[in-house]
């Protein structure tokens, strides 16, 4: 009955169908994205993604553990002897070669800031311990030196240095 009319309107009809389908697809995507995005860390979590910490009160030879993004972080005020010891180690002795300078900030070498989870399986190493005067992980026997570098044991890598910077002489911003 309407075959002739159908022929003449085929193009317009196809275009209309494609356009409607395309707009519908865009709309669906615009709805789906926020439903997924809500899984991301919320604003109150993100507000703690970056913290400021005043290292001033930490005496030489002492370390404190602070929390950052749910992880414990060691902040150690190293002694001259510890710095000298760390710098004296030849890179060839290291399993995960990194100089002491690479693990501290210039002008602030006395401050060592590291995430306090052993790179083996995540235990928290004990400070002022081990065969290298640094840290010793009691879980599986990893020894770290005075720059937090892995020296012996099953851990594959040095203790992780988080992104941080000194925004004043003693104020550190981590993250």
């Amino acid at each position: 009955m309407a075959t002739q009319a159908e022929h003449t309107t085929t193009n317009r009809r196809d275009f209309l169908y494609v356009a409607t389908g395309a707009v519908g697809a865009v709309g669906t995507a615009a709805v789906v994205w926020p439903l997924i995005n809500q899984l991301n860390p919320d604003a109150s979590t993100l507000a703690l993604a970056s913290i400021q910490y005043d290292v001033g009160p930490i005496a030489e030879g002492q370390s404190v553990t602070i929390m950052w993004r749910g992880l414990p972080v060691f902040v150690r005020h190293r002694t001259e002897a510890e710095i000298a010891e760390a710098k004296a180690v030849p890179l060839s002795d290291l399993k995960d070669p990194q100089t002491d300078e690479e693990r501290t900030k210039p002008g602030h070498e006395q401050w060592l800031i590291m995430i306090a989870n052993c790179t083996h399986l995540g235990c928290i190493p004990v400070g002022d311990a081990g065969d290298f005067d640094g840290w010793f992980c009691p879980c599986h026997g990893s020894h770290y030196d005075t720059a937090g570098r892995i020296r012996r044991g099953p851990a594959p890598a040095n203790l992780v240095v988080p992104p941080y910077e000194f925004i004043s002489d003693t104020l550190v911003q981590i993250g």
Binding site: M1, E6, T9, R13, L16, Y17, T20, V23, G24
Partner: peptide, 20 residues
């Protein structure tokens, strides 16, 4: 605005489909 546009397109599509 999107829903207005989409409803218009949907209506046109529906009419075309039901034309016969």
């Amino acid at each position: 605005l999107f829903l207005g546009l989409f409803a218009g397109l949907m209506y046109a599509t529906k009419r075309k489909l039901w034309a016969g």
